[in-house]
C-alpha cells in the first residue's frame, strides 16, 4: 500500500498527489512514469512522474480528472492509500551536451514538462519555458516554472491572461528572432506535439516528445502502447515514452487514443451513478 502524503488542488480539474514510494523515488528520473491502481478492482493507469524526493521517499504525480479512474483518484485524500504503485518505468530523458533548450508544455503536459525543465536548469542549461493553457483560470505551476527557467512564456488559447496564442506560435516567434536551441522538448496533447514538431522540422532542431498511448501493464508485455516511429513499431513503455517528434506518426497515435472513448464514457456514467447514489434505471 502506498500512502498519499500530500494533496494539492492545482485547478478544479487538476490535482497533485505526493505519494510514499521509497523504492520508486530512489530511481525516478524526469521522463519516466509509474503505473498505479487505486484498489483491488481498479484498472492499471500510467502517470508521468512530475517530481520526486529521494530523501523523503516520495513521488509526485499531477493528473487531470478525465476518466473514471482519475475522477475516483481525485476524491482521495491525504492519508489514503493506493493499492499499487509500480515504477519507475520507461527510459529516462537524456540531455548530454545540451546548452540551450526550449521546454514546452501544453495544459496538463506542463506538469510533465516541468521536471524536465527542472533537471535541465539544474544542469546549468539555459531554459526557455513555454506553457500553454485554454484560459487563465487553469494555469498551474506558474511559480515552479519560473523558478526553473531563464524565460517563461505563458499563453492562453482565449487570451484571458493577456497573451493569446498557441505554444507553437511562441516557439515560432522565438526561432524567427534568432534563438538557437540544441533541443526542444514538447509535452502535451498529441496534436500540440505534432504542431511543435512541424515548427522545428525546417530548422532541424532535435525535438523530443513524450507519448501517452493506452497501456495495460506498462512493463513491456502487452504491446498495447505501440506507436509507429520512423516507420517501425516501438513500444512506449520500454522504448519510450520519449521519442523523436520528427519521426512519430501522430495521426496514428491520435486515432489509437480514441479506442475506448465509448467505454470510458460509460464507465464515468457508472461511477457517477455510484457517487450520487443513483441506481441504473
Amino acid at each position: 500500500m502506498y500512502k498519499i502524503v500530500r494533496k494539492e488542488v492545482l485547478n478544479p480539474q487538476v490535482k497533485l498527489f505526493e505519494i510514499e514510494a521509497p523504492y520508486v523515488a530512489r530511481k525516478a528520473e524526469p521522463g519516466q512514469f509509474i503505473i498505479l491502481r487505486i484498489d483491488e478492482d481498479g484498472e492499471r493507469v500510467p502517470f508521468t512522474i512530475a517530481d520526486y524526493d529521494r530523501e523523503k521517499g516520495t513521488v509526485t504525480i499531477i493528473f487531470q480528472e478525465v476518466g473514471a479512474t482519475t475522477i475516483r483518484l481525485g476524491q482521495m485524500n491525504e492519508g489514503d492509500y493506493l493499492a499499487d504503485f509500480a515504477g519507475p518505468l520507461g527510459v529516462a530523458s537524456h540531455f548530454e551536451g545540451v546548452k540551450k533548450a526550449a521546454v514546452i508544455g501544453g495544459g496538463l503536459g506542463v506538469a510533465i514538462a516541468y521536471p524536465q525543465a527542472k533537471k535541465l536548469h539544474g544542469m546549468g542549461v539555459e531554459v526557455d519555458f513555454i506553457a500553454g493553457f485554454r484560459n487563465k483560470d487553469i494555469i498551474i505551476l506558474e511559480k515552479e516554472m519560473a523558478a526553473v527557467s531563464d524565460r517563461l512564456f505563458i499563453t492562453t488559447d482565449d487570451g484571458s491572461n493577456g497573451n493569446k496564442g498557441f505554444v507553437s506560435d511562441v516557439l515560432k516567434k522565438l526561432l524567427d528572432e534568432g534563438n538557437k536551441y540544441d533541443v526542444v522538448i514538447a509535452i502535451g496533447p498529441p496534436i500540440m506535439m505534432k504542431v511543435v514538431s512541424e515548427v522545428t522540422r525546417p530548422y532541424g532542431i532535435k525535438t523530443i516528445v513524450s507519448l501517452n498511448p493506452i497501456m495495460v501493464d506498462g512493463t513491456g508485455m502487452c504491446g498495447g502502447c505501440r506507436v509507429t516511429v520512423g516507420g517501425k513499431i516501438k513500444f512506449a513503455c520500454v522504448d519510450g515514452p520519449d521519442f523523436d517528434g520528427h519521426q512519430v506518426d501522430f495521426d496514428e497515435l491520435i486515432r489509437r487514443l480514441s479506442l475506448y472513448k465509448k467505454d470510458e464514457q460509460a464507465s464515468i456514467e457508472r461511477h457517477k451513478c455510484r457517487l450520487e447514489g443513483r441506481t441504473n434505471a
Binding site: 495495460v216 504491446g223 505501440r226 513499431i233 513500444f235 496514428e252 479506442l259
Partner: peptide, 21 residues
C-alpha cells in the same frame, strides 16, 4: 516479453490486439 507482430500493413489499426494484451 513483448508480442511479435507480422509486419504487414494495418497492424496498428484500431481493433488489432496482440494476444498478450
Amino acid at each position: 516479453g513483448l508480442p511479435s507482430f507480422m509486419n504487414i500493413p494495418g497492424e496498428n489499426l484500431n481493433g488489432v490486439y496482440s494476444a498478450n494484451e
